[in-house]
Every structure is written in structure tokens, then in C-alpha cells.
Computed example of a mutant assay.
Amino acid sequence: MNKKLNRKNFMIRAGFSSVLFVGIVGVSLSAVLTAEAKDWLKEKGFLKPSSLPTINSSPSTEAPLPTSAKEIDVDRKLVAQASYSRSNNIGVLTNPRVFSDRVTSQNQENVYFFSLAQPSNISLYLDNVTSSVGMRLYVDTNGNGSIDSGESVDSRTAYSSSAGVIKRTLGGDNYIVVVKFSGGNSAYNLQIVNNTNDAINVGSLKGTRNFTGSINRNTREKYYRFSLSNPSDVRLSLDNVTNSLGMRLYVDTNGNGVIDSGESVDSRTAYSSSAGVIRRRLGADNYFVIIGGSGGNTNYRLTMFAP
């Protein structure tokens, strides 16, 4: 008992000492505290729960890279040429799709077309590059098969050290993705995922449900959907991991079947040495759980319980 108290007191002292240190050298508190200390302080109310750094929320809150009128005009001409062949026409996006190709000084852009039958949480990942490569997402709002002013949705750049990632809640419509030459000749992988369609539907949560899975380059996040018919004390536990892995809980407050801004409820991180656990009194509603992170490839076990 005394050892536990001493350990907690040490973490609290470490937290307050970190605040002083932050004031002196200007580094963030999250960069100073250990992961276990932050989780303990969060549970005790010293720190407010924050978004996991390993999982991006949907829709994306990061400002898209600026796209000039000249760049849009170049993309418009490219799409007009590509629309004749539509060799990369995905059609209605249901299952995850992966494309491997190259951009060079001679072939500077590749175009991909997809559509959504209903609102969906979509992720686009651009990686495996040796030089910087750009990615732009457009919505064909007027259905003319081309890019027009005001149809730019988001843009990101992939580097050899980091992926370019777009996460958005998109409506039922037609979309165009342009992958662009930027810093030099490079191969790339483009992965487009409809997370809403790919989600595991748990149904009404009653009793204990166990799920196992793997997070890797092919499956970077996994969505689970469940409902509660009555207010319940819910417990979510994430364990059996070999690398740190995040778990995030959302409530579908507007009942549109997708995750929107402002619907985050709680988040935790699982480590090889300790489980990530969310305990919440939840109302009768529909919920999403997202498992994912950038700590490395890992298997996991997710346990859901409601009495």
C-alpha cells in the first residue's frame, strides 16, 4: 500500500515539477511526463482527456495545404484527359483499395476516381515514397466529371519519413484524388479506405464481447460500432499488444451513422505492460470505437462489456 502511494506521489510531484520545467524551457507537459504518468493523472482529474496523438480524428482538423488557382487548373486539365480512360475508376468505394505506381518528371500526376453511396468516414494514406509526393482530394459537386473552382476538399504531402494522410467525413458524392510529382521521381502506395463500410457491427451491447485483430500497414485502424438500448456502465479494455496502441470512443449524437466533429467521448492507450481501459456511464445511443496507432505493428484484444 505504501509503495503504491509513494509511486502515485512521485508521479504527482513529477507532474508539478514538469510544469515548472515547462515554464522555464518552453517544452510541452506531454513531452515531459511518461505515458503511464499521464494516464494516471488523467484518471485522477489532474489532466483532461485529450485526443490520442496516434489516431487522427475525423473529420480532419488540420488545415489543408494551400491549393492555388493555377494548381487547380493543372489538375482540371489532367482529370479531363484521364476521364477518357478512367483506368483508375474505383466506382462505389466499399472495400479498402491499394494502388502502387510512380510519379516522375515525365509522368507527373496520376488520377483516381471513386464515389460514395452514403456519408462515410474515409481515410487516404500515401506512403512508401523516396521523395516528397503530393496528394489532393476533390469533390465533383456538379457531377460534370471535372474539377471546378470550390471543389477542393483537402491536400497533404508524403515524405520518405512520414505518410501523407487525409481523414474526412464525406457525403454521398463523386470524388477525385490526384497524386502529384513534387520533389523528385518516386514510387508510391496509395490506400483508400471506407472506414464506415468496413466497421465491425457489434449490435446491441449486452454482456461481454471479445474481439481480436492486428494493426499493420494494411490495416492501420479498425472501427467497431455498437448500440445501447438503456443507460449503462460500459467498460472497454484493450490489451495483448506488443506496441503502444490507441483506443478512442465516439457517440453518434446526430444519428447519421458516421463520426463527426464534437462526438469524441474518451480515449486511452494500451501498452505491452498495461491495458488501456475506458469506464463510462453511457446513455442509450449508437457508439463507435476506433483501434489504431503509430507505435508499430501489433496484435490486440478488445473486450467490451455492458450489464
Results as ranks from 00 to 15, higher is better:
Asn2Val: 10
Lys3Gln: 11
Lys4Met: 11
Asn6Gly: 14
Asn9Gln: 03
Met11Thr: 08
Ser17Asn: 13
Val19Ser: 02
Val22Asp: 00
Leu29Val: 00
Leu29Arg: 00
Leu33Asp: 08
Thr34Lys: 09
Glu36His: 08
Trp40Pro: 00
Glu43His: 09
Lys44Pro: 01
Gly45Lys: 05
Gly45Phe: 07
Leu47Met: 11
Ser51Tyr: 11
Ser51Val: 04
Leu52Gln: 06
Pro53Cys: 05
Asn56Gly: 10
Pro59Ala: 07
Ser60Arg: 07
Leu65Trp: 08
Thr67Pro: 03
Glu71Leu: 13
Glu71Phe: 04
Asp73Ser: 15
Val74Gly: 01
Val74Tyr: 13
Lys77Val: 07
Val79Asn: 09
Ala80Cys: 03
Ser83Val: 05
Ser83Cys: 00
Tyr84Met: 14
Ser87Cys: 02
Thr94Met: 05
Pro96Leu: 01
Ser105His: 10
Ser105Phe: 08
Ser105Val: 11
Asn107Arg: 12
Glu109His: 15
Asn110Arg: 12
Phe113Trp: 15
Phe113Ala: 04
Leu116Val: 06
Gln118Glu: 15
Pro119Cys: 03
Pro119Ile: 05
Ser120Ala: 15
Val129Cys: 04
Thr130Arg: 09
Ser132Thr: 14
Val133Asp: 03
Gly134Trp: 09
Tyr138His: 06
Tyr138Pro: 04
Tyr138Ile: 03
Val139Phe: 04
Thr141Ile: 07
Thr141Arg: 15
Ile147Met: 09
Asp148Lys: 08
Ser152Ala: 12
Val153Met: 06
Val153Ser: 06
Val153Cys: 02
Ala158Arg: 01
Ser162Arg: 09
Gly164Ala: 11
Val165Leu: 06
Ile166Thr: 06
Ile166Arg: 02
Lys167Asp: 08
Asp173Ile: 00
Asn174Gly: 02
Val179Ile: 12
Lys180Ser: 14
Phe181Leu: 04
Phe181Met: 07
Ser182Lys: 14
Gly183Arg: 10
Asn185Tyr: 02
Ala187Thr: 08
Ala187Ser: 15
Asn194Leu: 03
Asn195Tyr: 04
Thr196Asp: 05
Ile200Asn: 11
Ile200Trp: 06
Asn201His: 01
Gly203Ala: 06
Gly207Trp: 07
Thr208His: 07
Phe211Cys: 01
Thr212Phe: 07
Gly213Pro: 10
Thr219His: 05
Lys222Ser: 08
Tyr223Phe: 15
Arg225Gly: 04
Phe226His: 10
Leu228Phe: 13
Pro231Val: 05
Val234Thr: 13
Ser237Trp: 00
Leu238Val: 05
Ser244Arg: 06
Arg248Val: 10
Gly257Phe: 01
Gly257Val: 02
Ile259Trp: 00
Ser261Phe: 03
Ser261Asn: 13
Ala270Lys: 03
Ala270Ser: 11
Ser272Arg: 12
Ser272Met: 11
Ser273Lys: 14
Ala275Met: 02
Gly276Arg: 03
Val277Gly: 00
Ile278Gly: 01
Arg281Ala: 09
Leu282Met: 12
Ala284Leu: 01
Asn286Phe: 03
Ile291Glu: 03
Ser294Glu: 12
Ser294Ala: 11
Gly295Val: 10
Gly295Phe: 07
Gly296Lys: 07
Asn297Leu: 00
Asn299Lys: 12
Arg301Phe: 00
Thr303Asp: 05
Thr303Tyr: 02
Thr303His: 06
Met304Asp: 08
Phe305Leu: 11
